[in-house]
Amino acid sequence: MGPFVTPNPDFYRIDTALVVPELDPRAWSLRVHGLVENEFTLTFDELLAAELVETYVTLTCVSNVVGGNLAGNAKWLGYPLRDVLARAKPTAGADMVLSTSIDGFSASTPLPVLQDSRDAVLAIGMNGEPLPLEHGFPVRMVVPGLYGFVSATKWVVDLEVTTFAAKEGYWTSRGWSCHGPIKTASRVEVPRALARVPAGRVGIGGTAWAQRRGIQRVEIQLDGGPWQPAVLAGEASIDTRRQWSYEWDGARAGTHTVRVRAYDGAGVLQDERQAPPEPDGSTGWHSITFTVV
């Protein structure tokens, strides 16, 4: 099993730029404008002097396939975006914030998501360290509950309060969904697919996530048999993944299959139907095959 917190060097990356941008924080600024009463520019020094929050959030890429590894959990340090927008004072009719990176990438995030109680932040720190260059230094967006393509803009330099009718983000203009709420997902991480493990007691484990809803229950199925409850680790928050485990006693030699499914905090079972990532995230129950020797 991997750790609950993903080390910075192991955290997944999906970029549209071929070269990682290098910004001088002394020259960095964030323009906040559009359908607002108060346009302003935020400097890095002002950001450092603000009242920052630190929170665990699991990020997930919309292109993650069932059982894929494009999901990571980190402790983020940043300034709440709801405070940024409170200062800007969006006007009636605005329903989206278009965030733009220094490299031209843009994301369309629903305005209400950035104004509610979730810890959506302009992040400057990751796992107790300054934000790594490849993860958006000096400032990036972190928004719980939404896939990264509509929320997680790195090297962010511009926030435009606008409408979905007027503007599109980088990926939404290419046919992907414009809202992107994260779907309930679970995966088997141990044993690895096609692994060979000794007979007897076999440890099975993985993670499940349903940001903004949390994970209530995880079940596994061995070789097409009855579904059985897995043991859940503690929950840091409803915005983080949850680890699970199961001990299989008496595993006999041969090829075996394990399948996993999860229920969110409201008791809703994740979607069994197999669907590809495009346009709004994959669905399906993950399964792997391994051999007991």
Rank of each mutant, 00 (worst) to 15 (best):
L42F: 04
V97N: 08
Q115H: 01
P279K: 13
A120Y: 02
D271W: 02
C61H: 10
V19Y: 06
L81K: 03
V218I: 09
S245Q: 14
A230H: 11
A120V: 00
Q274V: 11
E189F: 08
L122A: 04
E129C: 03
V156E: 09
T109K: 09
V143E: 10
L23A: 04
Q270V: 00
E247L: 12
A275K: 14
W209G: 00
F290N: 06
A251P: 03
V20Y: 04
P80Y: 04
G267V: 15
S245R: 15
G224V: 05
F40W: 09
K89V: 06
A233L: 06
Q228A: 10
P130F: 09
I238N: 05
G125W: 07
Y12R: 03
P132W: 06
G136P: 05
V142L: 04
G136N: 07
P181D: 09
T291W: 07
D10G: 03
F137W: 10
A185Y: 14
V97I: 12
N38F: 02
S101E: 01
E51Y: 06
G224Q: 07
D280L: 07
E134M: 07
L35K: 04
G203S: 12
P279C: 11
G234L: 08
R140F: 04
V143S: 11
R261Q: 03
E278K: 15
A266I: 02
L52T: 12
G67Y: 07
G225Y: 06
N69Y: 05
A165E: 15
G34P: 00
A166Q: 13
L70Q: 15
S108C: 08
G72A: 13
F4S: 09
A92M: 03
G206K: 08
A86Y: 01
L18D: 11
N69G: 08
V258C: 07
E46A: 14
V32F: 00
Q221R: 15
R26W: 01
A236M: 14
R212E: 09
R252E: 10
A74Y: 03
P226C: 01
T55H: 14
V197K: 12
I220R: 10
G234Y: 03
F164I: 08
M96C: 15
G284Q: 12
L122N: 04
P21Q: 12
V139C: 06
D280R: 14
G250D: 02
N8T: 14
L114H: 09
I238A: 14
P277S: 07
D158E: 15
W76P: 01
R259W: 00
S108I: 00
R87M: 05
A49K: 08
R87S: 02
F40Q: 04
K75G: 04
R261C: 01
P198W: 08
G250E: 06
P130C: 06
T255I: 02
R217N: 12
T6P: 10
G93A: 11
P112N: 12
A27C: 03
R261E: 01
A17I: 02
L23S: 01
G175W: 11
P90Y: 13
R241N: 12
A71V: 10
W227A: 06
G284V: 10
G145T: 11
H33G: 01
V97M: 09
P276K: 09
R13W: 00
A266H: 13
A253P: 06
D45C: 03
G104S: 07
T184G: 15
P181H: 10
P3G: 07
R196L: 13
G148I: 00
I215K: 04
V231A: 14
L114E: 04
D271V: 03
L52Q: 15
L77P: 00
S117T: 05
G148P: 03
P7C: 01
S177E: 15
